[in-house]
Amino acid sequence: MLTKRIIPCFDVADGRVVKGVSFVELRDAGDPVELARKYDLAGADELVFLDITASSDGRASVYDMIRRTADQVFIPFTVGGGVRSAQDVRLMLEAGAEKVSVNTAALERPELIAEGAKAFGSQCIVVAIDAKRAADGRWGVYTHGGRRETGRDAVEWAREAVERGAGELLVTSMDTDGHQQGYDLKLLRAISDAVEVPVIASGGAGEPSHLYDALTDGGASAVLAASIFHFGTHDIGSLKAYLTGRGLPMRPVTPQ
């Protein structure tokens, strides 16, 4: 049976993991390769690296990071952040990423999704959607960390992205992100009902029950989280044991 996926997410800048990884037993908490290996052994099903490098000079560092990670980590990982063109997608895939996530550039030029899907297959094109609840109970699409409104409806954009060739959607609620009070289940359900592709839930994980809710009520195929893993609040093995206990199919963590 297909298992539900747990996906730790890392922010990287200039090829280094930044922002609050205080995971135990690491010689270098900023080294993406060491972190990726650690999470692989801990039972992560996939990994996501979000490149937040500010300077264009530093952007080449992400390719080197992907190559070094792919050399040593044999589970799938997705890389996103600053992807502007099909050529960016190509370089990331050739460096060893399994999937590439696109966000702002796809909103500005939706043809990018089809270009990537045609050249490399839908399976490697993830469209990331940052959504925020509007007064009318629907959700708007935002960019720039929730600061810039696009005027797009999140469910409609999800549908369009899949029609254009997205193989997976990474749905982040800007309302719940960072609060550790649970994912936005209504948003997740609205989008997972609207599309046939897998949906990754993001934004708001704080307790094991939040993951369960996203994977059941939310209709998500996978749950992404950062701080609950990076601060050691919950380890992946015990989260999987919890979710298995509640009847969800999970890939067990194998003893090393």
């Binding site: 297909l2 298992t3 539900k4 099903d45 193989g167 997976e168 046939e196 592709v197 195929s221």
Partner: peptide, 11 residues
Amino acid sequence: FGMTVPHMGWN
């Protein structure tokens, strides 16, 4: 049709 595709993940 009607299934979630791609079939993506660990099985």
